[in-house]
């Protein structure tokens, strides 16, 4: 079977298009590359959707935590504490079983036990909490002069937030937020290792990589392939976020711009 044929059969296997059965023996390098690559669809889906939706909630959380009113601050603080203080792994398990229990009571929760929605909600809450904390830190470090200048111009309320505070907050938070995005993508590999079932063997990249490692007892091929894919993904994320960073910093002299530094970060 030629490699092109393999790509046709398994290229979209992770979303259920193509050959039903996974290859069982005599694995070729091409098959491993194709299947793990097709699993990346899920990683990218989880990462992108959770990031985009989480971004708005994170802004709310960050602003909420910076408020002086107790009614706004406490819920934001607690939300951030709960999702940052516990392992994502346990959150996935808890979320899955929570939805499972709800499902047995109400039919409405039927799709929530599937990975595409249930895991997405957990990831959404998780990234919102982590980014909310980043945004909160950035809000605290907005130069006093900027806000005073806005006041002097007579900007108030929503206009002041939209024109001055929010862009500055984003600019200050962006390098840290880039790291958050990268590690969110890494965290998506956990999904199918927790309760969420990979229905009809439609899993993510790590799911297929460990499938091959289990079948061949040889971790030295699938995991480096997976690593290669993730390094590529990381480079793409850095490029995209770097472009945004350049735009956020465009009014500053070259020397004052904040550069994005990739910091080695960790499991959550």
């Amino acid at each position: 079977m030629s490699c092109l044929q393999t790509i046709q059969d398994y290229g979209l296997r992770a979303v259920g298009i193509g050959e039903r059965l996974l290859p069982r023996d005599n694995f070729t390098l091409c098959e491993q590359f194709t299947l793990i690559g097709s699993g990346m669809i899920w990683n990218i889906y989880f990462g992108v959707v959770a990031l985009v939706t989480g971004f708005f909630f994170a802004t709310l959380l960050g602003v909420g935590k910076a408020q002086s009113s107790l009614w706004l601050r406490k819920p934001a603080e607690w939300f951030i504490f709960v999702f940052r203080g516990s392992p994502l792994f346990i959150q996935f398990f808890f979320g899955y079983f929570l939805f499972l229990t709800l499902k047995s009571q109400y039919d409405f929760f039927d799709p929530f036990t599937a990975a595409w929605l249930g895991a997405l909600i957990v990831l959404f809450c998780n990234t919102a909490a982590y980014s909310g904390e980043i945004f909160y830190g950035a809000l605290q470090s907005i130069p006093k002069g900027d806000v005073e200048a806005a006041d002097a111009y007579g900007l108030t309320g929503w206009t002041r937030f939209k024109r001055v505070i929010w862009p500055t907050m984003l600019r200050l938070a962006w390098p840290a937020y880039t790291n958050e995005a990268i590690f969110l993508f890494h965290a998506t590999t956990l999904v199918f290792f927790t309760g969420f079932p990979a229905w009809q063997q439609r899993g993510d990249a790590l799911y297929y990589a460990s499938y091959f490692a289990d079948k061949t007892f040889n971790p030295f091929i699938p995991y480096p392939i997976l690593a290669g894919y993730f390094i590529l993904l990381t480079i793409c994320v850095i490029a995209a976020f770097g472009a945004v960073n350049a735009r956020l910093n465009r009014h500053l002299p070259q020397a004052n711009r904040r550069k994005i530094r990739l910091r080695p970060n960790l499991i959550r």
């Binding site: 965290a187 790590l206 499991i267």
Partner: peptide, 22 residues
């Protein structure tokens, strides 16, 4: 120091156990 950057840690966990064992 550099090798753990850019790769999901959980992949390392799965990889090292088999690699060490073998």
């Amino acid at each position: 120091i550099a090798i753990v950057r850019g790769v999901p840690d959980i992949a390392f966990f799965l990889f090292f156990v088999i690699a060490l064992d073998q």
